[in-house]
Simulated assay, not measured.
Amino acid sequence: MPAERRGSGVLAQSVGLPLAVLLGLLVLWEICVHLFSIPVYLLPAPSLILMDSIGNLGTLGLHTLATLKTVLLGFFFSVAVSLPLAVVLTSSQSAANAIYPILVLTQSIPKIALAPILVILLGTNELPRIVVTFLVAFFPLVIAIATGLMAVPGDLLELGRSYRGSWLQMMWRIRLPYAVPMIFSGLKVAVTLAVVGAVVAEFVNADAGLGYFIITSTAFFETPLAFSALILLSLMGILLFQLVVLIERLLFPWSAANADKTFG
């Protein structure tokens, strides 16, 4: 019985409290809009945003799927490139010295400035949007993975060498398992940044997607629809983040347990 009460208390704290705060903010928002007679094109009331969203579910759904496709492709390629590159960076000092400056250079370029150039180079198709999404998500992920691989205690490495473990065995059985918490930390950051990258790319070149929908909505002063797209983008980021959390809990429960202790 005490365990059940403790579990319900944790659920109330982790779910009920944030929902109550969010509901209170929405009510306050609604009251302020009506109380101060704020024009719809400046700040629509939550009730109006909800009604406009329901009336445009089909259109919003199509644009959401377009953005989600770009996000997932950019995130997938960032993972596919980051993991082997981080292994190379942590295995060779010469490779690290040669590659790190290039990584920093790519990160220092504002993606909103790079997007039009990519359109010229790659054409007005989906590829520039995927590349921008990849570049936004890629850097923090490769840094997180490399940090995790380098954080292995020297005692563990010495133990592996004492058993005459090969480089591949040391990487597979010692470095990668030890780096799992850092890898998933990087994945959580990267998947949310991928949403940001996709929207930035859609602002520059797109004929579909929530970023494109925000641009067209604000151009015609349909602010409630622009807020609907913003809310959907937030929900997309939250759901993708929680999906990474779920994968970590299912595949590496010990890593998820450590994360819960750290943040709980």
Results as ranks from 00 to 15, higher is better:
residue 140 P to I: 13
residue 111 K to C: 11
residue 101 P to D: 13
residue 140 P to Y: 14
residue 125 N to I: 08
residue 112 I to Y: 07
residue 97 N to L: 08
residue 140 P to V: 11
residue 101 P to F: 09
residue 104 V to D: 13
residue 107 Q to K: 14
residue 145 I to S: 05
residue 133 T to I: 09
residue 134 F to E: 10
residue 117 I to R: 01
residue 112 I to F: 12
residue 132 V to S: 04
residue 143 I to N: 00
residue 139 F to Q: 13
residue 129 R to L: 12
residue 132 V to H: 02
residue 110 P to E: 12
residue 109 I to E: 00
residue 98 A to P: 00
residue 138 F to A: 04
residue 131 V to K: 03
residue 105 L to Y: 07
residue 116 P to K: 02
residue 135 L to W: 03
residue 108 S to H: 06
residue 109 I to C: 00
residue 128 P to N: 10
residue 131 V to C: 06
residue 115 A to N: 05
residue 137 A to Q: 03
residue 123 G to F: 14
residue 102 I to V: 09
residue 135 L to E: 04
residue 117 I to C: 00
residue 114 L to K: 08
residue 129 R to F: 11
residue 135 L to H: 03
residue 129 R to Y: 10
residue 118 L to E: 02
residue 130 I to N: 04
residue 112 I to M: 09
residue 127 L to W: 15
residue 137 A to F: 05
residue 123 G to A: 14
residue 110 P to N: 10
residue 100 Y to A: 00
residue 112 I to R: 02
residue 117 I to P: 00
residue 126 E to A: 14
residue 147 T to N: 15
residue 101 P to H: 11
residue 135 L to R: 02
residue 120 I to V: 15
residue 124 T to W: 15
residue 135 L to D: 03
residue 122 L to S: 04
residue 113 A to V: 14
residue 123 G to R: 14
residue 100 Y to C: 00
residue 144 A to R: 14
residue 109 I to R: 01
residue 109 I to P: 00
residue 124 T to C: 10
residue 104 V to L: 11
residue 118 L to Q: 01
residue 141 L to M: 11
residue 121 L to I: 09
residue 112 I to A: 09
residue 100 Y to I: 00
residue 108 S to K: 05
residue 132 V to K: 01
residue 137 A to M: 05
residue 117 I to D: 00
residue 131 V to M: 07
residue 118 L to A: 02
residue 143 I to Y: 04
residue 139 F to E: 09
residue 118 L to C: 01
residue 132 V to T: 12
residue 125 N to V: 06
residue 128 P to R: 07
residue 124 T to Y: 15
residue 109 I to K: 00
residue 122 L to D: 07
residue 98 A to Y: 06
residue 101 P to Y: 14
residue 121 L to V: 13
residue 137 A to K: 05
residue 107 Q to F: 13
residue 125 N to D: 15
residue 120 I to H: 10
residue 127 L to I: 15
residue 100 Y to G: 00
residue 147 T to A: 13
residue 105 L to T: 11
residue 97 N to D: 09
residue 134 F to M: 12
residue 111 K to R: 08
residue 116 P to A: 05
residue 131 V to T: 09
residue 118 L to I: 02
residue 136 V to R: 02
residue 107 Q to A: 12
residue 102 I to S: 06
residue 125 N to M: 06
residue 123 G to V: 13
residue 105 L to P: 03
residue 106 T to V: 15
residue 119 V to S: 01
residue 135 L to M: 12
residue 136 V to P: 04
residue 139 F to G: 12
residue 141 L to W: 13
residue 106 T to H: 04
residue 131 V to F: 06
residue 122 L to G: 07
residue 142 V to Y: 02
residue 103 L to W: 15
residue 122 L to P: 11
residue 132 V to Y: 01
residue 120 I to P: 03
residue 133 T to Y: 06
residue 147 T to C: 12
residue 111 K to H: 11
